[in-house]
Amino acid sequence: MKSFSAKANAIFDEATEAYHLKNSVSAQMENPYEPDTIEYFLYEKNWIDVVQWHLEDIIRDPDILPKEALEIKRWIDRSNQERTDLVEKIDNYFLHHFQLIVPANDAVINTESPAWAIDRLSILAIKIYHMREEVNRMDTDQQHLISCRQKLNVLMEQRVDLSAAIDRLLDDIAQGRKYMKVYRQMKMYNDPSLNPVLYGKNKK
């Protein structure tokens, strides 16, 4: 049976490749999976991540116009909120999946929920894609290629380790050795009732 991390890695690679066929932050996502399934959420999660990756590249252009930089920054803020929302949807899937599991008396909580670990796996897929691009560049020197090959090897090892840790965490939850407890992210700067700069304007 295919492990969850193997499925996630395959979908993340698929979404990353699909983005780069269009190679535009404005490209529309065409999710091939059934809506409201875990596969759909994983694909959408990686698409958001890879768009944000390229937004972060764009905003670091030293010649970018201030107005464009501000627009990109606000786009990144919206993207961060969408990313958080997707992580919570993925955690909701696991909460439902494991709802009948009764934790053992000595069960412990993990340092992060399954979805936040999977979030890191999505980012790794994008790092691996771009480091492979660097390894295959023809317009740079040999030392750069050697350095990037070493970094790619580390990223691949990290993916193996993180994938194994995620599968082990899911198995621990399924067997009652660990239990899920999800704290919803409260991004105060996005909330007009919690950000003093925003609610202060409403008082004027």
Rank of each mutant, 00 (worst) to 15 (best):
V197T: 08
E157L: 11
Y40W: 10
Q99N: 14
K7P: 01
R83D: 10
K203A: 14
L124C: 07
V135T: 14
Y93S: 00
S193C: 10
D61V: 07
A125Y: 01
I38Q: 00
E88Y: 07
I38N: 00
L55E: 12
A18M: 13
R137M: 12
Y183G: 00
R159P: 02
L194G: 05
L194Y: 09
V135R: 05
Q81A: 10
W47F: 08
V50N: 05
A125E: 05
W53E: 10
K178F: 06
Y33K: 06
R74H: 15
K187E: 15
Q142P: 02
W47M: 03
E68N: 07
D106P: 01
A10P: 01
P62C: 07
D61C: 08
L152E: 08
F4L: 10
H130M: 03
R120N: 06
Q150T: 07
N105W: 08
N9A: 11
H96V: 01
V135C: 15
K67M: 13
T140K: 00
M138Q: 14
K73C: 06
H97V: 02
I146M: 13
A117L: 03
E112I: 03
L121F: 01
L152R: 08
E44I: 00
S3Y: 05
F98V: 13
Q175H: 13
A174R: 09
S3Q: 04
K2G: 00
Q52Y: 02
L198D: 08
P196T: 12
N31R: 09
A104H: 09
K127G: 00
L152T: 10
S147G: 00
L70Y: 13
M138P: 00
D85I: 09
K187N: 15
K203Q: 14
I58F: 08
Y40G: 04
R149S: 15
S147I: 01
R120M: 00
A18D: 14
